Every structure is written in C-alpha cells, then in structure tokens.
Amino acid sequence: MEDKVKFEMEFVVHASPQLLYQYISTPSGLSEWFADNVNSRGEFFTFIWDGSEEKAKLLSKKSGERIKFRWMVDEEDDLSCYFEIRIQVDEITKDVSIIITDYAEEDEIDEAKMLWENQISDLKQVLGSA
C-alpha cells in the first residue's frame, strides 16, 4: 500500500459559521450535500452514495469550528490519514471559508480535489451562496 499524500483546499462560503457547522457535523446536514444519505451510530458514520456504503469513524469535532473523520478502510490498513472540514473566519474581512484537509494517493490527488470542488459546489447551492 503506497502512502497517501496530504492536501488542503480552501473555499470561501457566504454563510454563517453556525449554519455551516450544522451542514458539516450532522448526518442530516451531510446528507444534503456530501452523500446521498448519512447515518450515525455513536462515533461511526455511514456515508451512502449510489447504493454503496463507506464507513468513517469520527475522530474529533469542535463545535462551530471543525469535524474530523477517518475512513474505516484506512483505519483497517493502519493508515494515519483522515479528512477534516474546518470553518475559518477571517479576522479582518469576516469572510467565512471552509478548509478541507484530505489524503489521496499521489496519482489520485487531482481527482480527489475535483471531487471536493463538486461537493463544496453542492454545499454552496444548498446554502444559497453559489
């Protein structure tokens, strides 16, 4: 198994941090833009796309600020990678951004970034800030 490479992306989103947090931290919020359906049981979340399921473990969350998951397949492979969705507010301009931290295999980074761009585009549409 080759090592995955960490990457970060930033997206400016016109929405309040409190509203955004609901969309990144709850199963109902995540199922509005991230997956077709999301279920959670304790610290485990199940993401469903087109009938296929991926399970992730909630590693940490800070109310109003960030949420971090690890895909169970990565946990089983003993990989230390994760994906994090962080809300950042610029002190001066008060612009709200979402910072995505994720990992992908080197030859899949462009594809992974494109996937996040599509996901965040869906989120912006749901928020009405597209």
Rank of each mutant, 00 (worst) to 15 (best):
W33C: 01
W33A: 03
A35R: 02
A35V: 04
A35S: 07
A35G: 02
D36Q: 14
D36Y: 08
N37H: 10
N37P: 06
N37Y: 10
N37E: 12
V38N: 00
V38R: 00
V38C: 04
N39T: 14
N39E: 13
S40N: 14
E43S: 12
E43V: 11
F44S: 08
F44M: 10
F45I: 01
F45D: 00
T46E: 03
F47T: 01
F47D: 01
I48E: 07
W49C: 08
D50H: 11
D50A: 11
D50Q: 14
G51S: 05
E53W: 06
E54K: 15
E54P: 08
K55L: 09
K55T: 05
K55M: 06
A56I: 02
L59P: 02
L59I: 09
S60A: 08
K61S: 05
K61Q: 06
K62P: 07
K62H: 12
K62Y: 08
S63G: 10
S63C: 07
G64A: 04
G64I: 04
E65S: 06
R66Q: 15
R66I: 12
I67R: 00
F69S: 00
W71V: 01
W71M: 06
W71A: 04
M72G: 00
M72N: 04
V73M: 13
E75S: 07
E75T: 08
E76D: 05
D77V: 10
L79A: 02
S80K: 10
C81W: 10
E84G: 05
E84W: 09
E84L: 12
I85P: 04
I85A: 10
R86P: 06
R86L: 13
R86K: 15
Q88G: 08
D90F: 08
D90H: 07
E91C: 08
I92S: 10
T93L: 09
K94S: 05
K94D: 08
D95Y: 11
D95Q: 10
D95K: 13
V96L: 04
S97H: 09
I100G: 04
I100A: 07
I100D: 03
T101R: 04
T101P: 02
Y103D: 06
Y103Q: 05
Y103V: 03
A104P: 00
A104I: 06
A104Y: 03
E105W: 13
E105R: 14
E105P: 11
E105Q: 12
D107Q: 15
D107L: 15
E108L: 15
D110Q: 06
D110I: 06
D110F: 02
E111D: 12
E111G: 04
K113F: 00
M114H: 11
M114N: 13
L115M: 11
W116V: 02
W116K: 00
E117S: 15
E117C: 15
E117P: 11
E117Y: 14
E117H: 15
N118R: 07
N118W: 09
N118K: 09
Q119E: 12
Q119L: 14
Q119A: 15
I120K: 00
D122T: 11
D122Q: 12
L123N: 01
